[in-house]
Design a protein around this nucleic acid. Structure first.
Lengths: 138, 138
DNA sequence: GTAACTGCAAAATATTTGCATCCTT
DNA sequence: AAGGATGCAAATATTTTGCAGTTAC
């Protein structure tokens, strides 16, 4: 398990208070977070704009990755060791629980390759599964 | 191929000017559309709010389905015959071209089933593939 | 010391809501 | 005629930008 400082160093991001705090939130959170979630978890003396810019640079450097949703929000989740700047390896399945609404990265479930129609050249794939998660099954 | 009126009838939506026009836009469009795309294609005498509400009821009735993206927009695309109100069968792969940015529904490529960790109960899955589409391959 | 990060203000965009009016059935 | 759909106004929410001050290296 890496510390927040180690992660910033490794990704050549300067070490600032804001980044450390936001990174901590990710490290302490199971699952993915929306921009709004992060703001809520922040002691209010943080600027909304800083959050936007921090998330943006984290995505660019490959510290976190984005998860598409159908409700006009982007979710963010920590990348594991093998992501690099500019080239995400987040080819695992994301699971959205319809009960608790939490999104979980299933690191061990990789997105299967599919056969595309002639002429389509893929280079990345994402997969989102909805259902009941471990904590909410009945 | 169904007409706009047939589609509205079939889905128990009252037939109004706005709905007919917006439905026509979908029928004439290959690929998926964002809210903004639709507004652009509308002769300007349409209220933004009507578009929101129309898309919303189309989704509810299963006329169109939503496609998640990582850029804070939702894309909408026509459902094919086998969708019903409240229960979408849009289990096909969506392809996003990194060149022309168009999103295409690959109706014939169904989302493969994946094996989830113990305890996760899926009931729906979405898959988005990025790459170069037929028109943009080189 | 310099470049990069941050906060603040403000603009631009996007989304939602209430209500009166009009249209569909 | 009744219920639903629309337009308008306005409230909310979200995201982006510029700039001046501060901080990291």
């Amino acid at each position: 398990m890496q510390t927040n400082i180690e992660i910033l160093r490794k990704n050549k991001l300067s070490i600032t208070q804001g980044r450390l705090v936001i990174l901590d939130i990710f490290l302490q959170t199971e699952g993915a977070l929306a921009h709004a979630d992060i703001e809520k978890k922040l002691s209010s003396n943080f600027d909304r704009v800083t959050v936007y810019r921090t998330l943006q640079s984290f995505v660019e450097k490959g510290v976190i990755h984005q998860i598409p949703t159908t409700d006009n929000t982007i979710l963010y989740a920590l990348c594991k060791e093998n992501c690099e700047a500019g080239h995400h390896h987040d080819e695992h399945v994301h699971f959205v629980c319809v009960e608790c609404e939490q999104t979980t990265c299933l690191e061990n479930v990789i997105v299967p390759k599919v056969k595309l129609p002639r002429g389509f050249k893929p280079f990345q794939a994402a997969m989102i599964v909805k259902g009941h998660c471990v904590s909410c099954k009945y």
